[in-house]
Nucleic acid binder design. Structure first.
Lengths: 336, 336
DNA sequence: TTGAAAGCGCTAACAT
DNA sequence: ATGTTAGCGCTTTCAA
């Protein structure tokens, strides 16, 4: 079995006390250089590593942060995770990634899991199904540091990092309008998600600016964020069965964009002859489509980095933090 | 600050000893039903959760497993991770995911990280750059349970789960041959990776069976597994500059397939007019291509599940395990 | 049926 | 400069 060596092992091997060993290895000033040398060389030789569990118990922190995202297969999230890791690893923190698969139940379980697992803080992007955040409010009130990114909630006062969803949606919609499309539909995730609300706003503003009336029937929601193919297909079918079929569609998310393309393929709807499409997506594979898709990109990597920096600041603060910030990052329109 | 309640808190609130509380909450037979009731109700009320770090220290296991993959953005790996989580969560284990981004250095750091973090076992898919596995052999000799999946090594005797790479490659290549292609190139990851070797074998066997001579010049390696665009582009360019240009290409991996399509797009190489392509991939987005790609799928989810079951069996075994198994799962050819 | 005490590996206050 | 001791939260042996 796997039995790593401990301070005690070194102590009895070398005839010192465990505290001397501990101090020598952490290079404190009280230990004589010769003793340090002996101890460090021996520790090196047997490849000693301090037991982080014992350290955590002692120091009452685990040097790990929990991440809650919808799914890692989504390029927006995988890029954000890379940003999170780039900061966390540098600062000596572990990253524990969990996926909700857009399920509220799963989100609750994961968060409970992480909290009981004594992570020092949480980086959260809410699931599509989540409208009630009381499971998070409890933890927040108890003082567990948390930072929201991408899909945020107003119910909890803490740091937040989002993209400029309204502007991104505005540009995407305006782009379609400039291309001459008149009947622009909008396919989005669940209605209560912050990103859905903001992107819908941008869509409406673009229509308004160009004097195109907003039609409720042109907006289709996927309460499960496109996790079920049928949900997306039904939404598209409803749009295509309208008396005045849309000639273009603005899709509000990464997963949804891909699902939408699959539906088009399966229903034999041609792009751009039958319908034009543009949407939020960080997937480079969309470039491969022919014709390739114009899309709105979020600075996912950077969002992950900033959220992590904010979280670590709260975690490592000596005093309770009351001053929180909502950082809004710019999106970019990739015209193709 | 976040200060959860402890056994001691309950003990002093209720006037029992901590051991009685501990026993009552874990429902041991010695405690009287009334006492249990009082204690459990109070624990419920204050929402008590045992500190898993203290439990780990005591029980000398962390109830967590570490996963090492190239990158979560790869659909093969994200599906395998879903399989891993499906088993691990059921059995009460946490999953800590780390990415190597195909870098040997990163792999060493991550594994060291996980081991020192006291995971109870490791699920490993080697990075493209890894040829020396001594960093793993050390841990293996010390008794840390590990199971390899997908990219395995012969250097370490333990459980392994792989797809039938040779058969898959054979079928993919044979499919191209049956379609009438004669000059079939092979784009693959680094030469020493188990999957590269097995897929190359399948490719060669299919050629041999159809009496097509094997040409060394038609095989191109990407030592960094396609993590750098330039690597892939150079490989493709070399192929396309050959006197006898290939008319088809069999690509050995998920990431590589997508990179390859990007290169084709950028170099304005048309599919299938200029070249036909088929390859290993679990990305459903490839279905969206027009014409869509014939591909070999691995049962990624199931591979993750089986690897996890194997690992937990070793972890939870009371006696050292000497009897190991290499499970080979079937691939499937998706003709489109 | 319950409690006291030891110990998991580590750190740090308090000796010496 | 080094050692002794207590304690982080929990489980478990031993004692009552």
């Amino acid at each position: 079995m796997f039995v790593p060596s401990t301070l005690k092992d070194i102590a009895s091997a070398l005839g010192y006390s465990t505290s001397t060993i501990s101090r020598a290895l952490r290079d404190t000033y009280e230990i004589s250089p010769e003793t340090k040398k002996i101890i460090r060389e021996y520790a090196q030789k047997i490849n000693y590593r301090p037991n982080p569990i014992a350290q955590s118990l002692k120091e009452r922190r685990s040097k790990s942060i929990g991440v809650i995202v919808a799914e890692v297969a989504n390029h927006y999230f995988s890029q954000a995770i890379n940003g999170i890791e780039s900061i966390a690893y540098d600062r000596g923190y572990h990253v524990i990634i969990t996926q909700t698969h857009e399920s509220y139940e799963r989100e609750k379980i994961n968060i409970q899991h992480l909290a009981s697992r004594s992570v020092d803080g949480l980086l959260i992007s809410l699931s599509a199904e989540t409208s009630d955040t009381s499971h998070l409010q409890d933890l927040h009130q108890k003082g567990l540091p948390m930072v929201f990114f991408d899909r945020v909630t107003e119910d909890i006062i803490t740091h937040k990092v989002i993209a400029d969803n309204e502007k991104g949606a505005f540009e995407a919609t305006a782009h379609l309008i400039q291309k001459g499309y008149k009947r622009i539909a909008h396919l989005t995730s669940s209605a209560h998600l912050s990103i859905s609300i903001e992107r819908l706003d941008g869509y409406k503003k673009a229509l308004a600016k160009h004097h195109i009336p907003f039609e409720e029937a042109y907006v289709k929601y996927c309460p499960h964020g496109g996790m079920f193919y049928q949900e997306t297909e039904n939404a598209i079918k409803e749009l295509m069965n309208l008396r005045e079929k849309p000639d273009a569609i603005f899709v509000a998310g990464d997963r949804l964009s891909i699902d939408c393309l699959m539906v088009f393929k399966n229903l034999n709807i041609k792009i751009p002859e039958d319908i034009a499409i543009t949407g939020f997506s960080n997937s480079d594979v969309l470039d491969l489509m022919n014709p390739s898709l114009t899309s709105i990109r979020q600075p996912a990597f950077e969002m992950g980095q900033i959220a992590t920096q904010m979280l670590l600041k709260v975690i490592e603060s000596k005093y309770p933090v009351y001053d929180f910030e909502k950082k809004i990052l710019d999106t970019s329109l990739f015209v193709r």
